[in-house]
């Protein structure tokens, strides 16, 4: 620990901050490795995993559907004026489908779930840390990473692609409704162009991304929760950082994954 009797120079302060960040990253990596390794060895906590799947999947269904619906709708509103200029309103379905499946479906869903569940996970685990429940678990011979982290990570990684599928589908529905009401586009016309627009690569992109996003959100939520120090205030701070960090990381990961997947499925 730094000697506080001397006024620390800016440089040594920055050095300490950097050291702290590196240590945190190291702890995070360790947690990630452990949480994944636990999947392959017993004991496995299926009940906890199912409970988390319900909490994350079923619990987020409503907001994901509503958001998806209106994102689909607004996509049509925004693109249709362009297409109308060229008299190509029939392409609306294609534009909505591509934007939703490749990009907006996964990202918006992930951001919503990050706001809803990364915070929930961090505050739940954080409260358990400050009330010594995590220590009590260790004292009872149970590995908290196995019992608390792995079920959340598994549940999130499994549920997020399903939520994305819901968002995509409802989003297309919203898009169709707006297209029908404003452009008088027929159902057959909209849906056939929408579905035909999607290549295999687009679907892969749309469903590989949420796997990574789910992993990022759940591990960051758990990590922030488990490293809480300093009582209720600490829990509050951890909750905020869990949402902020996981949202930013989702967007960064989205960029790099898009680059990679676009490269892989280039014809």
């Amino acid at each position: 620990m730094p000697d506080t009797s001397e006024t620390p120079s800016v440089l040594s302060f920055l050095g300490d901050v950097a050291k702290g960040q590196v240590l945190a990253l190291q702890d995070y990596s360790l947690l990630v490795v452990q949480s994944v390794a636990n999947v392959f060895t017993p004991p496995r906590y299926w009940t906890d995993t199912l409970e988390q799947m319900d909490l994350i999947g079923v619990g987020s269904l409503g907001i994901v559907a509503i958001a998806g619906f209106f994102i689909g709708g607004v996509l049509v509103l925004q693109t249709s004026s362009q297409f109308e200029r060229f008299g190509e309103t029939a392409l609306t379905g294609e534009a909505v489908a591509l934007a939703l499946v490749r990009e907006l479906g996964p990202t918006i869903t992930a951001l919503l779930v990050a706001g809803r569940n990364a915070s929930g996970i961090a505050s739940e685990l954080g409260s358990m840390v400050v009330t010594e429940q995590v220590d009590a678990m260790r004292a009872l011979g149970t590995d908290p990473v196995r019992k608390l982290v792995t079920p959340r990570v598994v549940a999130m990684v499994m549920m997020l692609p399903l939520l994305v599928a819901v968002a995509d589908f409802v989003g297309l529905g919203g898009g169709f409704l707006v297209a029908y009401l404003t452009l008088r586009l027929g159902a057959v016309q909209f849906w056939t162009t929408a579905i035909r627009a999607l290549a295999f690569g687009d679907l892969v992109q749309g469903f590989v991304k949420p796997l990574f996003f789910g992993f990022v959100i759940s591990t960051i939520g758990c990590f922030q929760g488990l490293r809480v120090k300093g009582g209720t205030q600490g829990v509050g701070r951890a909750t905020t950082s869990a949402v902020v960090i996981s949202s930013v990381v989702v967007i960064l990961v989205d960029f790099f994954l898009s680059k990679l997947l676009l490269y892989m499925f280039q014809k």
Binding site: T131, E132, Q133, D135, A136, A139, L140, G141, D143
Partner: peptide, 20 residues
């Protein structure tokens, strides 16, 4: 190893530390 070892002892926490 410690997890296994702790299964053979009981620990009553000062604040109880019950799973709430």
């Amino acid at each position: 190893e410690l997890l296994d070892f702790r299964r053979h002892l009981g620990f009553v926490f000062q604040e109880g530390a019950l799973f709430d």
